[in-house]
Nucleic acid binder design. Structure first.
Lengths: 345, 345
DNA sequence: TTGTAGGCGTTATCAC
DNA sequence: GTGATAACGCCTACAA
């Protein structure tokens, strides 16, 4: 910067001001400075700026996995919002591990993010402690936790799952199996299972068919294996409700191989509206979440949090991004009120 | 840090050394310091450290889109490698735009990354200039450019596509259509088309069936639309080779709806080995790339570049991550030497 | 509109 | 093994 200043015959301060374009530099001077900046290929060092202004320009963002279009889409949507206000995402993936999450939060904090965004799938005690002490706005995404650390953007997995279960019951399904992971304490899978149980019990139906298989997140493969052992798992079942579309697709593929008709012999339902469920044949009925919207709303919330022309009291603590039920070919749709659009429509 | 130092009765320097665990602090002193650090919830400020050491700990990583499992997987694999050496990814997505790429490179540079990783899909002149002047190792991923800026990790899309085309010809296909995007100058799509042409011309076959549709990257939907107008696009064609698995799946779905048999009436081939092509029915033959391996190899290259116990001359400028052809159900496999494993196997 | 002085929180370096 | 000093490159605050 000194070089630029000398070449322009001004002080470093003036160069600094010209670069930030804060309006306090004469047009002529600024033009001259910018030309020299270009010629010298000068690129300001943001970490020095951060040190000085105490604003890092970072938003720490954790996701369970990138290996899942939902999270990737939401990050991308968030990024679009943040770029507009010059914020940079600092990404970390927890691989669905609260321990990794803890380490990530710790290392992110060293970068002095202005906001911390993370999924809620349960946090370790220390994670919560770190987040609270960080003195930085915290946004939990996807699930709406019982006791949120800070702001939340998302929906209740439990409610969504209950809704879907109630709808299945309304369609006449009685013997419904729920497929989810083993050792899913505190994850969204557990919340979805709870919603299922709630609805079934409210309807006086048996919740004995709770199949636990694989570890979170369940894969297509896991579902395929379950579906392949149809007799063992789904004998006398009318509808298989899977914790996510991935195992639902796997189950479906396995049933198809065995010549079991969906939805005539048995129905299959997923959760999440992954791309694969839309293009499967039969296409899979599912709970549709809108990942891009979660990212977008998170970004907007951040803009509000960081702009100083709004009182913090006016900012809502929770932003609901609700789900909807998508009825497709894998369920019997006798009483279906809304029908989802097929790709060929 | 001062607070910690006072509480421990040492100087800030000793605290700094204790935190970095550089071995020059007595065990007792370090233990005492660490305890106080924990009690005071002190979190060091990395931007100050960066300023002092001139090491940011960042690896700038650009991807065309996260909205594509390939890139997400490769980023994730890269991240695994980098975490091990305390490096943090600074992610940006170009949305397949060279202009966005240029802006991203510029803003990343302000963070003083220690390495810049980006896809090669053509760069603007200024991007190349910025990269060269940055005085930072540059790694181009996926494609192997003709004139690379720095290191490269990946494969030649042109060669891969030529290979696949040759294999299709060897299987007896003669009237092969190639489906790719409009305005794909300099993208991987163009390289793949070039490989196709090359192989077809070498075999004395017509390359008249070059269908251009949609803009990069082609979607399932684009393929579906093409496939729906079978008569117009694929009349008298024996095999449809798509620029990626996404349109291949779309085409396939559309053919299925029309009762056109694959591979009996016509073959369909993709590129990329997206998950959907493995689980489609019929499953889609494709050119299989290994995104995780690209990420992993990039990470390893970075480790070598940043470790000072290796002479730069020993580090290869290009790391080949080759593709393989996956033969599945969507092609007639008379002479197939290798057959891909199905999910149920 | 421009300049001067000082400090942001850490670490390199050298001395003890 | 520990401490004092200066510097990293920018920006805040104040002065001119």
């Amino acid at each position: 910067m000194e070089d630029v200043a000398q070449a322009a015959g001004v002080s470093r301060m003036t160069v600094s001001r010209a670069l930030r374009n804060d309006g306090s530099v004469s047009v002529a001077t600024r033009a001259r400075i910018m030309k020299i900046v270009a010629k010298l290929n000068y690129v300001p060092d943001q970490s020095a700026g951060t040190l000085s202004t105490r604003r890092s320009g970072f938003v720490a963002t954790l996701v369970p996995s990138l290996n899942n279009l939902h999270f990737a889409e939401s990050v991308q949507a968030l990024n679009v919002e943040l770029e507009a206000i010059g914020l940079q995402i600092l990404l970390g993936h927890t691989a669905y591990s609260t321990e990794r999450e803890e380490n990530l939060v710790e290392s992110m904090l060293k970068r002095r993010p202005e906001v911390i965004v993370l999924p809620f799938d349960g946090h370790s005690r220390r994670t919560v402690k770190l987040l609270k002490q960080a003195n930085v706005p915290v946004i939990e995404q996807w699930e709406r936790p019982q006791r949120p650390v800070g702001y939340t953007v998302g929906f209740s997995n439990r409610d969504a799952s209950r809704q879907m279960t109630e709808a299945l019951i309304a369609k006449g399904y009685r013997k419904i199996a729920f497929v989810s992971e083993i050792e899913d304490a505190w994850t969204r899978g557990a919340a979805r299972r709870a919603g299922f149980e709630e609805a079934m019990q409210a309807a006086g139906l048996s919740t004995r068919q709770m199949i636990r298989y694989g570890s979170p997140p369940m894969s297509i493969e896991d579902g395929y294996q379950l579906g392949s052992d149809f007799k063992k798992y789904f004998n006398d079942i009318e509808c298989i409700f899977c914790v996510s579309d991935a195992p639902a697709f796997g189950v479906l593929s396995a049933l198809k191989v065995q010549g079991i008709q969906v939805p005539d012999d048995i129905a299959v339902v997923g959760f999440g509206n992954f791309e694969v469920s839309r293009f499967a044949s039969p296409s899979i009925s599912t709970v549709e979440v809108d990942p891009a919207r979660i990212g977008r709303e998170t970004g907007r919330l951040i803009r509000r949090l960081l702009s100083d022309d709004e009182s913090p009291d006016d900012i809502p603590g929770h932003i609901a991004v609700d789900v909807r039920l998508s009825w497709r070919e894998s369920t019997r749709n006798a009483d279906a009120a809304q029908t989802d659009t097929e790709p060929d429509a």
